[in-house]
Design a protein around this nucleic acid. Structure first.
Lengths: 212, 212
DNA sequence: GTCTATATGGCGATAGAC
DNA sequence: GTCTATCGCCATATAGAC
């Protein structure tokens, strides 16, 4: 674990001296995960190939499989890594409904700066609606968790009388997630068509009386 | 074209006498398209295989390719057929904004009775955000057309003062499409979670003052 | 109109040398 | 830790018999 924290983005070996014995391995792993994200984003998991990933990294398939022993494990590692990054990125207090809405708008804006990640989740979540997909339970759990968090935010807004109509917090949660997912599809098809953050902001203004 | 109209759903040959010379062929084509829809829905286009389709129909791959000469052509035929059916199903007058909203709710309800079709469009539209996908331009055009139609409806609603906030018709259109797409993903992951028609109805009630 | 046989190539994964 | 070589499988598509 200490080795993980010591990893370098540059991937240079032994820059930190002989004690950095895992540095290269970790750099390679990171490069593989970056490439895998691209490949799975563009082709989805099922038709993305580890061969393609290995070529982008500049190693052989066998070399790749030394680090991630199978294709499903590689996908799991990609998703785990994104979750780690997201955890550091959005550590917001969702108990405050207003700042939660601001956080979501910020998130939408940030996503627009990473089209590959948006593509990954968009493609994967659709692909993974099939129960046999290796990431199926991941996405089921993910949506449960996201709904749980948003529920807290909208309950706060409702108690403060900030929800515009008599819409229930549950429905507001489902609609918010739907809007975010649906905007991504339209945006991926034509990035000049809409600004995801702006669009979400307008949605919140129809849903709430928050001056956002 | 006459042959097409004379086709039988049962697939029985020569029921109509020797003049029904294309009946069997058309029945086979229909069976192939049904099976292809299932396969592409469950696995997406790229990882769905014509082998799988052929097995479901009970013919060989070569037999299938006699009717649809390549995999992309098979996909195109599936989409064309759905468009034909949809044309008969939703010939509504979208100039009347209120009845347009009702039509969309009905459409959402109807979609819930055909999970396979929802899965097909959900999976394909995500997959087809990639420009190299054979259905890419199909989906680009489809979204343009859907937006054009909905735009008319929301302009009508706005002129009649039925849109709740100062939201633009364009934004309302994009949000409506996003909601419909996004609800489908959540619904496919857990069909007991929400009722797509009901959810859309609540959305329209936050967006408009139409008593819907 | 449907079949068998086949060409051609990509895939995930393993074995074993270095 | 990375490679080459290879296995076994599945894919799309074609050729030609019936």
């Amino acid at each position: 674990m200490a080795a993980k924290l010591a990893a370098h983005k540059t991937g240079e070996v032994t820059v930190r001296g002989p004690r950095g014995r895992y540095a290269k391995s970790d750099a390679t792993r990171a490069a593989i995960l970056d490439a895998a994200l691209e490949v799975f984003a563009q082709g989805g998991y099922r038709s993305g190939s580890i061969r393609d990933v290995a070529q982008r990294v500049g190693i052989s398939e066998a070399g790749l499989l030394h680090h991630f022993s199978s294709k499903p494990r590689l996908l799991a590692a990609v998703l785990d890594r994104r979750d780690e990054l997201a955890e550091h990125l959005v550590p917001r207090d969702l108990n405050d409904g207003v700042s939660a809405l601001h956080g979501l708008i910020e998130l939408a804006r940030f996503n627009a700066s990473e089209p590959g990640v948006v593509e990954l989740y968009c493609t994967l979540s659709a692909e993974a609606t099939s129960p046999s997909h290796p990431a199926h339970t991941y996405f089921v759990n993910r949506y449960v968790e996201v709904r749980r968090r948003l529920q807290v935010a909208f309950e706060d807004l409702e108690q403060r009388g900030l929800v515009r109509t008599g819409i229930s917090p549950e429905a507001a949660v489902r609609a918010t997630i739907a809007i975010m997912d649906g905007l991504q599809v339209q945006w991926l098809l034509d990035k000049s068509l809409l600004d995801m953050g702006e669009e979400l902001r307008e949605f919140f203004r129809t849903l709430t009386t928050v001056d956002i």
